[in-house]
Design a protein around this nucleic acid. Sequence first.
DNA 1: GTAGCGGTTGACAACGCTGTCAGGTTCATT
DNA 2: AATGAACCTGACAGCGTTGTCAACCGCTAC
Lengths: 364, 364
Amino acid sequence: MIAASGFNPVRTGRNCRDSINMSKSTINDVARLAGVSIKTVSRVVNREAGVRDATREKVEKAIAELNYWPNQSARDLAASKAHLICLVYDDPSAYRLPSAGYIIRLQEGVLRVCRSHGYELLIHPCNYRDRQVGDELKVLIHRARPAGVVLAAPLSNFPKIVKAISATGTPFVRLSPGQKLTGERVVASNDRAFAAEMTCYLASLGHRRIAFITGHPKHKAVGHRFDGYRDGLKRSGLEFSERLVMAGDNSFGSGEAAAMTLLQRKQRPTAVFAANDDMAVGVLRVASRLGIPVPEQLSVAGCDDITLAEQVHPALTTIRQPFSTMAERASLMLVKGTEESEKPNGTVVVPGTLKIRESTGPAP
Amino acid sequence: MIAASGFNPVRTGRNCRDSINMSKSTINDVARLAGVSIKTVSRVVNREAGVRDATREKVEKAIAELNYWPNQSARDLAASKAHLICLVYDDPSAYRLPSAGYIIRLQEGVLRVCRSHGYELLIHPCNYRDRQVGDELKVLIHRARPAGVVLAAPLSNFPKIVKAISATGTPFVRLSPGQKLTGERVVASNDRAFAAEMTCYLASLGHRRIAFITGHPKHKAVGHRFDGYRDGLKRSGLEFSERLVMAGDNSFGSGEAAAMTLLQRKQRPTAVFAANDDMAVGVLRVASRLGIPVPEQLSVAGCDDITLAEQVHPALTTIRQPFSTMAERASLMLVKGTEESEKPNGTVVVPGTLKIRESTGPAP
DNA sequence: GTAGCGGTTGACAACGCTGTCAGGTTCATT
DNA sequence: AATGAACCTGACAGCGTTGTCAACCGCTAC
């Protein structure tokens, strides 16, 4: 298939005509009206090269006149692959976590690519704690035959899930996986680097006792942030101390719990950096409850820039994760990978950006 | 098509066997292995009646052995309709509104139906301010040929959008439309009723000056809540006063603005009921800034039960909108409508439920 | 013994498109 | 004027299902 990077079936420039004419005309009708063969219409529709301008115009006119749109099922059948990208992520309704924003951003990213390349997006939330999840994904892929699969974190870290998808032979890209495998496509953000950056930022404000709340142990990418925290400490000439590290599990509640412990010490930290925003907001909540003014007496920073981060008071300093861009890049690899020559493996890193808001300030 | 209400292609009870065997076997292979005709395999796969048990078992065994899954494109082509439900909603990235939770819930609802009926979900956020949106939807429908379209609010209120979908002839269901048209399918929640209920609840706490912040004028369903507010006032024997009504636009910011005005009056209201949660949270924020304790000096209530409602401090009293259930019911109408005899129009009402949390209390 | 009738099965033609390949045109080159 | 080469175009065979319809089987009813 030649398929120029263009995508959508050609339509003459003018807007869709009144399509009261919903007569689902076929390529045959167009061919007849234009006085050419089916194949030629197909060529025009797919923007294949090698059609004389005059012919193309005739065909385009006929297409517009009949309000023709190719039948996707037939196309996919003939080309033996569906114009579909499948986005697989952790089911938000399984937890009660506010991961909605994360998912929406992922979807946005994939959708951008879909729109520009004539693909459709199939979404598939699933629950990794479900025993059957591997089979479920295989079935999905067998049924839908998508051009590729984008596997979002934290699912991208579960071997059984990766294996299941891999077994189908369908191209896939992992997002923010904890560890990389060889010969595999990955899009990640630089968690370690930006966590270090945040730590340095806090240190530069004069903080000396910077606590860290770790993420869910299964979520590897979040784990890298801990490494980044240590990097940042070292780079700022600060001592690492176990006492300043609390274990969290990415949830709001675990952030609260950690803060309860940290903030009630006689010598409490002057800054708390949480591995994600949910926990950071938990810290904020506890601080408010304990009457500790933020940022005057305590600086709080998170990671991810969830919607809530902006709405909470004081607005949370955090790191904006480029989720949507990551998903976009991943989808692009998939789309290109099938249209052009199969690309080899590759890792794309999309950088996150510091969002400094109100919850951080000079050390007291 | 006979198609029992069952859906997924039959698989023998046991789990998928090791499917290293990803050989994309076709119905032909199965037929050969089982020693029957293609058509018989098709019957078994589709759970059609009239296959002898012994034959069915032979076929199921062959299916399991070859790890066969029907090709969706081929199916859709032959049956001339795709097993797809299309969910169309307002693009959250177009605004900067935190509508992610809303969308995720809608998706959840549709997905439940998809899963149980062998459909897939196609999502299509779009921007109603875009001139081309009608054509865009027509193209989508022409291309994907979904079994039906679920049109979410606030999009369900725009005539040009409804018309465009209607013109394609594809069955569709509107969610929470502002006004109903005849001969049309609708799923709505009882906005007016529950807004009245909330108002009565506040009145029952002793509040006499209950303010209301209206929603975006274009969002009709939210408009009904204003009517409900007046109903509630009347039912509680309270006088309606223009002075207690502020115009909002569904955004956090507009909630803040309204609160700034309301709460700085010498005789401020003792309760504020906002037409949605975003605005209610805005009120909470302003109250905190002005040092007005909630709920001791001021009760605040919202509508929708967005994720944030639970996380904010104090947790927001609100009304849980049954978005996910609404989407589910809508999808069900679509799926049934195409599988069974075309159902006539109908309106389904799914009730919302009061969620009383910390932000409301007895009048001071 | 035979017509008739459910119950069961298979042959075959779509479904609407793409890929392959051969055939036809056009045009510059010898 | 003949020879290619480059360019266009169309015939045709799938792609893997489902729908239609005819055929067959075994049995009951006459």
